[in-house]
Computed example of a mutant assay.
Amino acid sequence: MRRRSVLFAVPALMLTAAGCGKDDKKSGSAASGSPTNSASATPSATPSSSAPAKPKIVSGPLPAITAGTAFNKKPTVAKGTGKPSTDLAVKVEIPGTGAGAVAGDYLRVNYLGQIWDTGKVYDTSFGHAPYAIPLGQSKVIPGLDQALTGQKVNSRVLMAIPPSLAYGTAGYSQAGIKPTDTLVFVVDVLERFTGKDSAKGTPVPQTDTKLPKVGTNTDGKIPSVTLPKGAKAPTKLVSNYVLEGSGAVVKDSDTLLVQYQGLLWDGGKQFDSSYSRSALTDFPLKNVIPAWTQGLAGKKVGSRVMLVAPPALAYKDQPPQGSGIPSNATLVFTVDILATL
């Protein structure tokens, strides 16, 4: 089970399930034909109404990093001295490379968080698994979102986040954070994922003429899907590599970051695609239709997988309203597994 980070805003809200209306596409959430099986448990929240949409960013004051100063080494940070700024203070300790992150990107990071006044470390990913942060989706505290927007891979960022851009007047008692506490973070940006990413694995021969053939492009564009003419739909789940990655093996308890598309076996009409939204999708693997849970568990990160989902492992006779999926339809998906979160 993934450890929950206090980077996330609170209180948690439930994301919408499959069957949402067409407006979902405008907001960047999963479309009505997405593989979500039930209400997602992914935490999300909107910033406090008192938090400015674009806070002023200043250069300090900031406490010093006294040990672990190299990139991706667990840092030791001095206790804050004096009065912290009421604005967001940000300093790039180690410059990164490449393009700066923008809203809609996901950043894989290591981080350490502590309280300004006491120097108490209340959370860290160092020594655990790196964490993935979605930018511009109101899923993390506003100050963190703002401080990391524009940052580059391989950068180390030191920041001091005032209460108005953290947990506001409620604080976060579970972590010992009072409503008046300024928070200090050191964040190392390890990796960036964008809506133009795709799997980069090795092509696997597609020799079964009774199954769809999927494109092997790795340029972030939607892969082609050629359906077999006159072939009967499989009655059992098909889960085949198109590109085989070299990453970790996916567990059914993982949360995945993916690009995907869905088509009808009969006629080949596309009913959903993350590519068309230029937005990545993340979901707990246990919270999607059985074809995805069963078909993606055991596959490797970095892979493109072709799934053929019979009705019993998809939506049966209750497809999402407005999805364009007929009752008892066999579905074809291509899924690029970019990362586990």
Results as ranks from 00 to 15, higher is better:
Lys286Phe: 10
Lys286Glu: 15
Asn287Val: 14
Asn287Gly: 14
Asn287Cys: 06
Asn287Arg: 14
Val288Cys: 15
Ile289Trp: 04
Ile289Val: 15
Ile289Arg: 06
Pro290Tyr: 13
Pro290Ala: 11
Ala291Glu: 07
Ala291Trp: 06
Trp292Lys: 08
Trp292Met: 14
Trp292Leu: 14
Trp292Tyr: 15
Thr293Ile: 01
Thr293Asn: 15
Thr293Lys: 15
Thr293Met: 00
Thr293Val: 04
Gln294Ala: 11
Gln294Leu: 13
Gln294Lys: 15
Gly295Gln: 12
Gly295Trp: 01
Gly295Ser: 10
Gly295Asp: 10
Gly295Met: 08
Leu296Thr: 14
Leu296Cys: 06
Leu296Arg: 08
Leu296Asp: 08
Gly298Met: 07
Lys299Ala: 01
Lys299Ser: 04
Lys299Gln: 02
Lys299Gly: 06
Lys299Leu: 05
Lys299Val: 05
Lys300Ala: 11
Lys300Ser: 12
Lys300Ile: 06
Lys300Arg: 06
Val301Ile: 13
Val301Gly: 11
Val301Asp: 04
Val301Phe: 07
Val301Glu: 09
Val301Met: 09
Gly302Thr: 13
Gly302Ala: 05
Ser303Gln: 08
Ser303Phe: 10
Ser303Arg: 09
Arg304His: 03
Arg304Cys: 09
Arg304Met: 07
Arg304Ala: 11
Arg304Glu: 11
Val305Lys: 10
Val305His: 02
Val305Tyr: 00
Val305Leu: 03
Met306Asn: 03
Met306Pro: 01
Met306Tyr: 00
Met306Phe: 02
Leu307His: 03
Leu307Tyr: 10
Leu307Val: 13
Val308Asn: 13
Ala309Asn: 02
Ala309Leu: 04
Ala309Pro: 08
Pro310Met: 10
Pro310Trp: 07
Pro310His: 14
Pro311Asp: 02
Ala312Gly: 11
Ala312Met: 12
Ala312Lys: 15
Leu313Met: 05
Leu313His: 03
Ala314Pro: 00
Ala314Met: 04
Tyr315Gly: 02
Lys316His: 02
Lys316Asn: 12
Asp317Glu: 09
Gln318Met: 02
Gln318Thr: 08
Gln318Ser: 08
Gln318Glu: 06
Pro319Cys: 04
Pro319Trp: 09
Pro319Phe: 08
Pro319Ala: 05
Pro319Gln: 10
Pro320Trp: 03
Pro320Val: 01
Pro320Gly: 07
Gln321Glu: 15
Gln321Met: 00
Gln321Asp: 05
Gln321Val: 11
Gly322Ile: 09
Gly322Pro: 00
Gly322His: 01
Gly322Ala: 09
Gly322Met: 10
Ser323Glu: 15
Ser323Cys: 04
Ser323Arg: 12
Gly324Glu: 11
Gly324Cys: 12
Gly324Arg: 13
Ile325Pro: 01
Ile325Gly: 03
Pro326Gln: 13
Pro326Phe: 03
Pro326Asn: 10
Pro326Glu: 02
Asn328Ser: 06
Asn328Leu: 07
Asn328Gln: 05
Ala329Ile: 01
Ala329Tyr: 04
Ala329His: 00
